[in-house]
Structures are given as structure tokens and as C-alpha cells.
């Protein structure tokens, strides 16, 4: 008996089964998601990133930041994500699919060599801190294993009497008279990072509701703003 057709049809069936389950069905279910109107604030979530942040996403992608940083908060009980303060929704609510609606490339990441960045835009809002951290991570986080991204900056010595550019990083006391300027890529990357936040109260990510109901007053309905985490 010629078994070739049997193997071919069997393989086709198995491929079709996994394709329908993991490609077609998820597309049917979440492929048409749209922005959500948060009634309390009247704002839409997620917010479409600004132009510079959008450019920054390309820098994030090109330099492979997602190999060391994740961008997903798991629910409480699954790892220490919520306990570490990486989530920004009240209570144990995790990242949901709608959060990524406007990412040109969804880079959830698969390893945490560095901390999760889902809500880095809420934890660290200081642009200069981010630039300095990209230029020399260990100056702000001693012992950090993050490589410095000096190639995103230009460095030159100031001529006598020359003014420092307003864009320049704070002067390093060890190297006076040297100016470090962020490139457009570095600025875009920081715009992207500071724009990252997943804190919208959604139907599928509701404000955390604590039982008993009697005690769940206004506090439960309003998303709790997370305490800013210490700079790392």
C-alpha cells in the first residue's frame, strides 16, 4: 500500500488543527479590539503614542532591549510581578491584550535580565535620569549589568568659553569641560520609555474590588496610583 498520501493528509490535518487553534481563533477573538472609553475620566485607553515615542519604539527594537526586559505583568499568584510594584492597576490585575493595541511591534520579552518595563513611564518620569542611565547605567545603579549605550550619544570637549548645550547630560565631575549630547535616537528612546504605561481600568482589567462590599467605597472604584518605585 502506498502510505505517502496518508502521511501527507495526516500532516496537513495536524498543521491545520494547530493553525486554526493558535492563529485563526485568537485573531477572531481579539483581532478587532479597539480603544476603551474609561467612563470615570472620559479618556480613551490605550493612548496612541506620540510621534517621537513611536520612533523610540524602533530604537528599542533595533537594539534588542526586549531580550533583557519584559513588558508584561503577570497576575498575582504567578511570580512576584505585582508584589514588586511592576503593575500599575489597582490590586492583582495583570497586563491584558488591549494594552498592546498601538504597539507597532509587540515585544513582550521572554527574559528578565533587567526589570519589567510595562509601567516604566509611571515609575521613572525624569527624562534626564533615563538619558544618564542609558549613557552609563552603573552611575545610577551601581553593580548594574546593563551595558552602556554610549553609541547613542556624542561626546566632545568644550572650547574655552563655549556654553554647554541645554540638551547635554549633567557634567561629570571626573571629566570637567566634556559635553555629552544625546542623539535623536536616544531622545526618541527615552520618549518611548517614559510613555510606557498600562494602567487603564478596563472591562477585562477592572479596578480591584475588595470584599466585603461594604468597605469597598470610592477607593475601589478609582485606580490607585502606584507609589513611585525607587530609582534603580
Amino acid at each position: 500500500m502506498n502510505q505517502g498520501p496518508l502521511v501527507f493528509v495526516g500532516t496537513f490535518f495536524a498543521l491545520a488543527a494547530t493553525w486554526f487553534t493558535f492563529v485563526l481563533e485568537p485573531s477572531q477573538q481579539i483581532g478587532n479590539q479597539s480603544q476603551f472609553l474609561i467612563e470615570d475620566s472620559g479618556q480613551l485607553f490605550p493612548v496612541k503614542p506620540a510621534g517621537l515615542a513611536h520612533q523610540g519604539e524602533a530604537v528599542y527594537r533595533a537594539n534588542g532591549c526586549f531580550y533583557c526586559h519584559t513588558m508584561q505583568v503577570r497576575p498575582q499568584g504567578l511570580g512576584g510581578d505585582v508584589a514588586r510594584g511592576w503593575g500599575a492597576r489597582s490590586g492583582p490585575v495583570q497586563s491584558v491584550s488591549r494594552d498592546y493595541l498601538f504597539a507597532e511591534t509587540t515585544m513582550l520579552g521572554s527574559q528578565r535580565v533587567g526589570p519589567d518595563l510595562t509601567n516604566i513611564g509611571l515609575r521613572q518620569t525624569n527624562l534626564v535620569w533615563h538619558l544618564q542611565h542609558l549613557y552609563d547605567p552603573s552611575s545610577l545603579a551601581p553593580g548594574s549589568t546593563m551595558p552602556p549605550y554610549r553609541f547613542l550619544f556624542t561626546k566632545h570637549t568644550l572650547k574655552p568659553g563655549q556654553k554647554r548645550s541645554p540638551d547635554a547630560l549633567p557634567e561629570d565631575p571626573k571629566a570637567p569641560g566634556v559635553e555629552v549630547l544625546p542623539s535623536d535616537d536616544a531622545k526618541a528612546l527615552v520618549a518611548y520609555l517614559t510613555g510606557l504605561h498600562s494602567d487603564g481600568v478596563l472591562y477585562e482589567a477592572p479596578a480591584f474590588y475588595v470584599k466585603p462590599v461594604a468597605k469597598a467605597d470610592k477607593k475601589a472604584a478609582v485606580p490607585v496610583t502606584p507609589a513611585p518605585a525607587p530609582a534603580k
Binding site: 537594539n63 534588542g64 531580550y67 552603573s138 548594574s144 549589568t145 551595558p147 552602556p148 553609541f151
Partner: peptide
């Protein structure tokens, strides 16, 4: 090598971890 000497390829984009690893 990034994990042995993080600053090694700070000025060389092509050899940085985020590019050489993939």
C-alpha cells in the same frame, strides 16, 4: 561577554548584546 564586562561594547552598536545575541 556582556555579562563579564558590561562596558566592553559600549561604543560598538553591532557587537552590543541586543544585536549580537539575536
Amino acid at each position: 561577554l556582556t555579562f563579564h564586562a558590561p562596558k566592553m561594547f559600549a561604543d560598538c552598536a553591532a557587537m552590543s548584546f541586543g544585536r549580537s545575541h539575536p
